[in-house]
């Protein structure tokens, strides 16, 4: 699974297979981190705006 595990071989098969895997995992996690952060930011900014209005 990781290049440091002993079964790992630097061959084309491993590179394609795990390349694809890590690419997919990367996109998914990056996407999720992005939307969570953005949602948090949106919430904060909205809440600051709201606080400003109510005071």
């Amino acid at each position: 699974m990781f290049p440091f595990s002993f079964e790992w071989v630097w061959d084309i098969g491993h590179m394609i297979f795990f390349g694809g895997l890590w690419y997919a995992v990367g996109i998914l996690s990056a996407g999720m981190i992005y939307v969570i952060l953005k949602a948090a930011w949106d919430t904060m900014s909205e809440s600051i705006n709201n606080s400003g209005e109510s005071h």
């Binding site: 948090a40 919430t43 904060m44 809440s47 709201n50 606080s51 109510s54």
Partner: peptide, 14 residues
């Protein structure tokens, strides 16, 4: 209700 919502959010985040 707006106040409630605001407080609730604060709690969740905090």
């Amino acid at each position: 209700s707006a106040t409630r919502k605001k407080q609730a959010t604060k709690v969740i985040v905090s």
